[in-house]
């Protein structure tokens, strides 16, 4: 019990007749980065909103650091920092005033507020523009500010709802780096995402969700083995291919699709297939214009995993 940051049991949320969250159970250990991975509409945001005390569940309980989010909400909320799905800083306030507001809502003294805000603004490369209204900020800057706001109170548990979705590469990298850094300093992290690579790179354990249900909770390494057979390689050659049979003969292919001019090739062994494609292009005197490896489609992974878990 003593080493658990988030404990969720039998959580259910209904919107009219839609079951957004369907009797889910899981726990997040202290110091862990827990990924909540699923396609759009899976119920990730709804789950995070319940966990952070923004909406109430129809049934089930949530406790944060041993505090019930409904009955002891004030104290539970003091333990957490929240980055919601849609950037919602006050655009009519400066970055500085946004941080001051949050600091005072979490009960920080004025001295602590100022010290913490300066530290975080520098950490997230926003210090130079701290006095500007955030109206002028880019999406990435707003998201960094939002993360800084969530960290003002030095929370024990940090909740992030798709923190890097739709951001520029630099902000993405900075945000991921900082999350890992705070985690090393013992912060537990609940990370919602639909990005498999992100979950893989950052999380100690991942729950895969769809239609409000958790299909499986495991380490990324183990889950990756299950994703493996659904790697996709997209390749574009400079010419029409005369000899389609040859292409199909390559080793490691599980399925080929032609999408416009590109070939979409499913495989369980990307390394082997890439070599084969290169050999093929030499033999046929083709040039490769582009070659991409794509993450597997979550929906497919989910279905596959659900099937396996049913039969296994």
């Amino acid at each position: 019990m003593g080493d658990i940051a988030i404990q969720v049991s039998n959580l259910t949320k209904l919107y009219g007749k839609t079951l957004a969250v369907d009797r889910i159970n899981f726990e997040v250990k202290k110091g862990e980065i827990f990924g909540f991975l699923g396609p759009n509409g899976a119920g990730k945001t709804t789950t995070q909103r319940i966990l952070t005390g923004i909406i109430k569940a129809n049934s089930g309980t949530v406790s944060i650091m041993g505090l019930n989010i409904e009955t002891e909400s004030f104290y539970a909320k003091r333990q957490i920092g929240v980055v919601p799905e849609i950037a919602n800083v006050y655009i009519d306030l400066s970055a500085w005033n946004n941080l001051m507001l949050i600091g005072s809502l979490y009960g920080l003294s004025k001295k602590n507020r100022i010290a913490k805000a300066e530290e975080l603004l520098k950490l997230f490369n926003l210090y130079e523009r701290k006095d500007e209204k955030t109206k002028t900020f880019s999406k990435g800057m707003k998201q960094r500010l939002l993360l800084a706001m969530a960290l003002m109170s030095e929370p024990k548990v940090l909740f992030l709802d798709e923190p890097t979705s739709g951001l520029d590469v630099q902000s993405c990298r900075l945000i991921r780096e900082k999350i890992l850094e705070f985690n090393r300093h013992d912060m537990s992290i609940f990370l919602t995402t639909h990005n498999i690579t992100e979950a893989d790179q950052m999380c100690n354990r991942v729950a895969i969700v769809n239609h409000g249900k958790i299909a499986v909770i495991d380490t990324p390494e183990k889950l990756k083995k299950e994703f493996q057979f659904m790697q996709v390689i997209e390749v574009l050659f400079n010419k029409e291919i005369q000899n389609k049979r040859e292409l199909e003969k390559m080793r490691g292919i599980s399925k080929i699709q032609k999408v416009n001019d590109k070939f979409k090739i499913y495989t369980d062994d990307t390394d082997c297939l890439i070599r084969e494609i290169i050999n093929f292009s030499h033999r046929e005197k083709l040039k490769i214009i582009s070659l991409n490896t794509l993450a597997p489609n979550l929906e497919e992974v989910f279905l596959k995993i659900v099937e396996e878990h049913k039969s296994g």
């Binding site: 005390g53 923004i54 909400s73 104290y75 957490i80 950037a87 919602n88 800083v89 949050i102 809502l105």
Partner: peptide, 14 residues
């Protein structure tokens, strides 16, 4: 509309 209410509600204030 601006979703700032959601942020406020997640803070420790009823």
């Amino acid at each position: 509309r601006m979703r700032t209410l959601e942020k406020l509600v997640s803070c420790p204030i009823s």
